[in-house]
Design a binder for these strands. Structure first.
Lengths: 332, 332
DNA sequence: GTGAAAGCGCTAACAA
DNA sequence: TTGTTAGCGCTTTCAC
């Protein structure tokens, strides 16, 4: 099998030294005349030369590689989108992603971090599948690190998060702008940070519009369709039922749909509904579900952007929040 | 910042040469007495020595890295599961996954393959998100390559696929075993290979049970809930309606559920339903949807297994089919 | 402007 | 059984 050309063969072909070739290829060739450069470039092309990354890594300690650690690859497909976002921006910058999935296991996480240190990655992205606080191994302090959809309990690393509060605000605001004044919220379980923040945003929108918050219109314990179904039935039999509902996620919204249908009401005529997550089925419901989209792709992309930024330009305790776009369909 | 220990420092600490250390660390130490080995191991531990992968790669041309190329990271989350499967088995074998997403672009695919060659990966996995034939760059012939959820149009690489035919058979067989004789199928669009194969399996199960195939009970053009809804309504108003339905996917099954509910019928009493895909919502439906699970995780795992197997043990034109497990819930 | 030479940390052929 | 030596292919310092 034909050996690949080396920098030496290129140098010979161009009639220069390996140093010159290296200089030209790495854009450190400010002092080299165009003519020489051109000869080198021609030789490279002619031989089809491609530098050997291992050799480059050994002598420069730069691998052009970014480690991407995930805790749990949820079946939801969200992980995939963050990975895609990170991968695409990496690719555009000639970097490549090294992936490890820890299953949430602390020992594996430690081992993964060690492995990434060994491999001299340029940076590490730690992505959690459901937003939460995490404790990460000390060793990560040696490498530029950034968290996605998670925050470090000790604030040692910057975090990129979806702006859930703003999302909750926007969702409710959308309902208000559509003319609603009696707006309920099917709120998730308190353990989930995201749900809590969405509720805060919901209340802010209400306040801002001068609508008194009515605890009777908020139902907790909704996370799956079943909960949405039950809560909707309960709310719609109130003396003064809501005319619009903000659901903590699309699953809950699906439960609403079912309840509304059974009650013989119509969406959005009798009840406007807005969800959260832009689940793959949201667009297939009848009517299409208006919802807030989690910016997983953007989170991954932003993480790489931060890693690529000049050292020090992102404070270690920075928290960057990315907006959740509103996906307008027909349910509001 | 303290430098990492090198093999030399370990050798000095242990009072041996770097060669000896290398031999011990790479299990080529058959000729080295226990006592010496022990000294080396102690020194390694004492110094916290970890070999430098770049250096190792440079001199051995082995990177312990597997390239994983995906075409489109679908929102369905399936990509994530194949990646997880591949990653976990890789990890268990001290290998690591390098990920590239091509978005289905041929130029990017070529560039990705070149990059993986440059980086001297031990092997390449090409995973497509919906099962299909693909044309891959020539350059891949130089590296052990295996396809997941896709097959090479020129049969140059082995492929790992879900056994859709067997899945279709098992689904229908499940219905037959539950006592049904009039079994319909809501069959997908003909362009999708998977749907066609599921239909073939369906007919085989019918044949085997001596049930005549009745074309009136098969409806094409179902892929989303809407289609399932319409087709179910149509089938259930037949003179002799089916007592069971095999849906080409869970989305279609969801449409069935809605139609059945509207018709005032019950599942599985009046109509048994079995789906395909084990969508994340399948378990949240009432009643829980019995369905066939796509073995994405296993496909990824199997791919790594093949790559790790001794060279030549997997024929280049091999097609390995993995079964889709039946997920029993309450709809049959 | 350009090149020689010394590594980067490890492996492996060969010698002892 | 162990050590010496010569690379692996590239970067980078320093001298010409």
């Amino acid at each position: 099998m034909a050996r690949r050309p080396t920098i030496r063969s290129v140098a010979e072909e161009a009639g220069v030294s390996p140093t010159t070739v290296s200089l030209v290829l790495n854009n450190n060739a400010s002092a080299i005349p165009e003519a020489t450069k051109e000869r080198v470039v021609q030789a490279v092309r002619k031989l089809g030369y491609r530098p050997n990354p291992s050799a480059r890594a050994l002598s420069s300690s730069q691998t052009h590689t970014i480690g991407f650690i995930t805790d749990v690859i949820a079946s939801s497909g969200y992980a995939g989108r963050s990975i895609a976002g990170a991968q695409e921006l990496s690719w555009a910058n000639d970097k490549v992603l090294l992936i490890v999935n820890t299953g949430g296991d602390a020992a594996i996480t430690r081992a993964a971090v060690d492995m990434l240190c060994d491999r001299q990655v340029d940076g590490v992205i730690y992505a959690a599948m459901s937003m939460c606080g995490v404790d990460l191994p000390e060793a990560l302090l040696q490498i530029p690190t950034i968290l996605v959809n998670a925050y470090d309990r000790q604030s040692r690393f910057p975090a990129i998060l979806a702006d859930e509060e703003l999302g909750g605000y926007t969702a409710t605001r959308t309902l208000i702008d559509a003319g609603h004044r009696r707006i309920g919220m099917l709120y998730g379980v308190p353990e989930v940070d995201a749900g809590r923040e969405r509720l805060i945003g919901h209340r802010r929108a209400l306040d801002e519009a001068g609508i008194a918050f009515d605890p009777a219109l908020v139902r907790a314990d909704c996370w799956f369709p079943e909960g949405g179904y039950r809560s909707t039935k309960a709310l719609m039999t109130l003396d003064e039922p809501p005319t619009a509902l903000f659901c903590v996620n699309d699953w809950v919204a699906m439960g609403c749909y079912e309840a509304v249908k059974e009650l013989g009401l119509s969406i959005p005529g009798d009840l406007a509904i807005i969800g959260y997550d832009n689940h793959e089925l949201a667009g297939l419901l009848r009517p299409g579900l208006t919802t807030m989209q989690l910016p997983h792709y953007d989170l991954g992309r932003k993480a790489v952007e931060c890693l690529l930024a000049p050292a020090g330009s992102v404070a270690p305790n920075a928290v960057i929040r990315l907006p959740c776009p509103l996906i307008r369909r027909q349910s509001v």
